[in-house]
């Protein structure tokens, strides 16, 4: 039970703790990285290099008044941040961190993750609707459209990988990349998944549902304190999740030369993508809402279908 193996309590506990801690640390990491890229210093006052900034932020966010606006719909208002937090954490259940680390070894891992991503849309919709605020409503409207749309390409872009590995099981997919990472045969799929992943987690530059300059803070305008904190942290967990998924699906997961343990390889690869996402935020401006939708349906959808078609054709022709 307390050994490091897939599904053991220790493993689950460790994963949960590490994921949340990493997500929390990302708040600091992101601020520091952004500032480097913007020729600033970033938070460097609390603790060594500002490391305790996270602690300070957490103390602040926990001790804030737990406020529910009188005009909000209480039940959905409270449940919305809980939903997003749960679904992103649940998604980690099927992520194969290392041969012996993971929560479950599921045959339908890919499908599970897609299902969880779909559920995430409820959170932002409920949050926005229950706030009874025009900015929140606009935000959730945008979020719903964006998440539902980009789920389509995300799913289709994964099918190439599934077809190549012949399985929905993420561990099988990782092991199938022992001969070569799927990023090479599935480069188009990788790019589409990358883009769709950003859109799904509404990170910059696709943070249209919460675009501060236009609609205040979008669906979480009325949120404060720990409820806002849950949205906030869930976004970072989502970031970790998408990075892990890219690692697993296209970059061979834990695979790597044996001088380092597999989990470290996984961590290194994932970190690269997390850093890349932060770089995106630092560099790329936000598109307009209609540009985002046009881009998705008129460019990404055809390309992902084409990718699937070509992959299928190649598989069929080589069999």
């Amino acid at each position: 039970m307390f050994v490091l193996e897939v599904g053991s309590v220790l493993t689950i506990g460790l994963i949960l703790a590490v994921v949340i801690v990493v997500a929390a640390m990302l708040i600091w990491v992101e601020r520091r990285l952004l500032s480097f890229w913007q020729e600033r210093l970033g938070p460097n006052r609390v603790g060594w290099f500002g490391l305790l900034q996270v602690v300070a932020d957490m103390i602040k966010i926990f001790t804030k008044e737990d406020w529910i606006p009188p005009f909000a719909d209480r039940f959905s208002f409270v449940i919305a941040p809980a939903i997003i937090m749960s679904v992103v954490l649940l998604s980690f259940a099927v992520i194969p961190f290392a041969p012996n680390i993971g929560v479950v070894d599921s045959n339908v891992g890919v499908l599970f993750i897609l299902a969880m991503a779909s559920l995430g849309a409820y959170s932002v919709m409920l949050g926005g609707l229950s706030s009874d605020n025009k900015y929140a409503l606009l935000g959730s409207l945008r979020a719903a459209a964006q998440m539902v749309s980009y789920e389509v390409f995300m799913g289709i872009s994964l099918l190439g990988v599934v077809a190549l590995s012949g399985s929905f099981n993420l561990r099988v997919i990782v092991e199938a990349q022992a001969d070569g990472w799927y990023v090479i045969p599935q480069f188009a799929g990788f790019v589409i998944f990358l883009i769709a992943g950003i859109a799904e987690s509404h990170r910059l530059p696709f943070d249209i549902p919460e675009a501060e300059q236009e609609i205040c803070s979008g669906y979480h305008t009325e949120y404060s304190g720990m409820k806002f904190g849950m949205f906030f942290v869930a976004e970072y967990i989502g970031l970790v999740l998408v990075s892990s998924l890219i690692t697993v699906l296209f970059f061979g997961g834990w695979l790597g030369p044996s001088f380092l343990p597999p989990i470290i390889w996984f961590a290194i690869k994932s970190s690269m993508f997390i850093a890349f996402f932060i770089l995106l935020r630092a560099a790329i401006p936000r598109p307009r809402y209609d540009q985002l939708m046009n881009y998705g349906w008129l460019f990404l959808l055809p390309v992902s279908l084409l990718n699937l078609l070509v992959t299928g054709a190649i598989i069929l022709s080589t069999q």
């Binding site: 890229w37 020729e39 770089l279 995106l280 560099a283």
Partner: peptide, 17 residues
């Protein structure tokens, strides 16, 4: 853009402490 912004990591920060 991404590359150029990434290169900024090697420039000295303008911040006056």
């Amino acid at each position: 853009t991404l590359w150029m912004v990434f290169l900024k990591i090697f420039t000295k920060a303008d911040t006056v402490e």
